[in-house]
Structures are given as C-alpha cells and as structure tokens.
Design a protein around this nucleic acid. Sequence first.
DNA 1: CCCTAGTGATACTG
DNA 2: TCTCGTCACTAGGG
Length: 423
Amino acid sequence: MGIQGLLPFLKNILTPSHIRNYRGCTVAIDAYCWLHKGAFACAEKLAAGEKTDMYVYYCMKYINMLLSYDIKPILVLDGCHLPSKKNVEKKRRERRELNRKKAAQLLRDGKRKEARDALVQCIDITPQMALELMNACRDKGVDCITAPYEADAQLAYLSQTGIAQVIITEDSDLILFGCHTIMFKMDTSGAGMLIQNKDLNKAMKLQDAHYTFDKFRYMCMLSGCDYHANLPGIGLSKACKAMKLTRQIDVRLILKKIPMLLNIRNLTVSAEYIEGFIRADNTFLYQLVFDPLSRKLTPLNPYPPGVKAEDMHYAGPPMSPDHAFQLALGNMDIQGNRIANFDPAPRSQSWINDTEKTPYLLSIWDPNYKPRGQVPEGEEPTRPSTKGKEVLLQAMGISKPKANEQRRKSEPPLKPIKKGWFR
DNA sequence: CCCTAGTGATACTG
DNA sequence: TCTCGTCACTAGGG
C-alpha cells in the first residue's frame, strides 16, 4: 500500500507533534486505518462471524480523544472501487480465503497460536463494520462522509478546500494527493508525526526554483504506486536522482530519458509504461470526489482545458449526483442498496447563536456551514483560550449554548482558499 | 559503495 | 456477497 519506503525517505521533514496543537480546528480521518487496527482486538470473533462491536469502541477512543481537545472530527470512508483496482481486490479476497482455510486446518490440528496468526491475515473490513462506526459517530454528532471512490482523494479535497486543517492517516499516498498537513502514526493520546506539503522540497534536497509538486509526485510514482508498477530496480533514491537531474516538465520526455539520466543501459521504457504512468498520474490528480457544500461530484483538481470526464473513467466513472449524495451520507452501499435513512436537514438548529463567528463548527451538511480555511503559513495554530470547547459541543448538539467569546478578532486573517494551489 | 526487493516477526483486547 | 499492513533487517545486484 502507498509508496514503499516513503515515510523513511521523508524523515528529515517528519516532525513529532501532538493533535492538541490543533485545538479548534477540523481534522479529517482516514477511517480504514482505525477500523483495521481495531479489528485485531476481535479477530477471532470477526472470523467466526460472531457479533462484536469491539472495533467500534476502539475507534471511538480516538474520536473522544479528539473531542476532548475541542477538535471537530470528520470521518472519511471508502466508497466504490476504481475500475483499475478490480484485480487487486480480487487477489486480496483470494488471499483472505486462503488464510481462512489455513487457520481452520491449524485449529483442527490444535495449533492455536499459528491458527491465530493465519486468522488475523484473513480479517477484512466490511462496509457493514464501517456503517456501525458511522452510526456511533453520528450519535455523538460527529460528521461522516463516504467518498464516491477512494477515501484518499476525498481527504485531499477536504484538505485543499480548507474544510480540514489536518488529515489523520497511515497511508503515504495522501502526500501525493496533495494534502497540506498530515499526521501519521497518531496514538490514542494524540501524539504523532507531522508532514507538511510545503516541506517536500527539503526532503528532495531541491532548491525552491527547481522544485515543483509535480516532480515530487513523479518521483514517488517512478518508485511504484498502487496504480502503476515501477521500472525494475528503480526505488525512491534513484527516482529522486532522476528528477533532480532533469529540467524537463513534459512527463513523456522525462520518462524516455530515465535510462540516460540514471546511466542504466539495459532499461527500456515502453510506450505502454508511459501511457500507464500518465493514467496513474491522472488518477492522483483528477479522481472524483464529493463536495459536501455544493453536494456535487467534482474532480479533485479542475480538469485542464480540453479534458472531459469521459476521458477519465479510470479515475472514477461518473455517477448521478443523487447516487453520490446518498453514498456520501452512508445511506447507500457500493452495490446501490439502501442501508440507512440518515437525513442531515434537521441539523440546522437556530439555537446555535454563534454561527456567524464559528460556522466551521457546524455539520458539513448544514446550509450555514463554512470552511475554516487554511492555517496561516502552514504552522501549527496556537489558540489563545480553551473557550472553543463550549462552542464546538454546542454545534454538535451536545451541550447548551453559552456566552460568546471574541477570540477570533485577535487572530491573523486566514488565507483564501485556492484550488490547484500546488501547480 | 549504494540501492532494491525479499524475508520473517508482528499487530489487538472501552 | 461484503475495503488497503508495516517495520527492521539483509542478501544480492549494479
């Protein structure tokens, strides 16, 4: 998953941090990471098909921790599979089935320890489990959104539009999708490692004048990604070297020059490799996401002139706006069956009397919701007071409204929201 | 010498 | 029928 070895490669810009530094902010969460870890707590029961909600409690431990720091969490879940990943999913299913049979045999042989090892290899996170978590979150007034396709692209959209100031995940792909600020390896206390998009040039050891985010993404993709394999023998170090040696910006020309740049004689870059590379790049750039404000599907970044949605079916085939909306709300599964009846409309409560000052604390489905915007200079924001807590809880419908406060006036103005900022 | 790619051990328990 | 692993270590290739 993700880019092999990317986090160790970025160790120079990985900084220890704590989520309490984002008091009053919105944090979007890659729900799969928590569900996967939580599933280990009840692997036997899940494999046996027994009813358990241990994994929900595991995830809610994180949610409650975030709420205790006056942070607004948004849980992001995966939606439909991309067409290009059908084969990968099939292989994973087969691998799980194989381990399931292995575990059963080991159990019959009385080898309990080995049986468990095989068993944990076959646990899968079902949409049903994701729904249980969504229900638990919404009981607490925590926003959830299911991506039309991959949660990765949806999380990047929330980061780029200023809806979320931090993304919590374990998946290094989020860096390629263009998130501003990402926290990796966050534990239940809120401690983790932070990566900021603005520091990536330092990791590549490139001067500002020669660095572009495109170069960083090409480097990662050259070393191999989920959408496209690498050239044999090319990892991050060699890919970085190649990207530093060229001033070319045309991807096709860069790829053709790779054997020359790296001085590798018997390396051929086929036309198929180049076309596959560009499809993968477009999947990072233009994957379909759901915009909760307009309630419409949109590509993560605006299409360049002349490109239409039909040219990008591999980055997520178009679907009807209502289908995407019901999927986003968690009312419909990826097969198109109705599984819930969550209606966000009644959420807009007029008794929340501070929405002019903190509209970003409302539900993202509330008509009065407004993104908070980017944190100035990408630094960790330090809040002057802890008064935000009451406001956040009010907005979530947990506690009664209290007196307003005027802390916003002392803060620097937020940067305007800019789409496609890294180009 | 650096770098890639494979191996084995390992995960969780309001 | 139903959603993604990762890390440390190292052999072996260029």
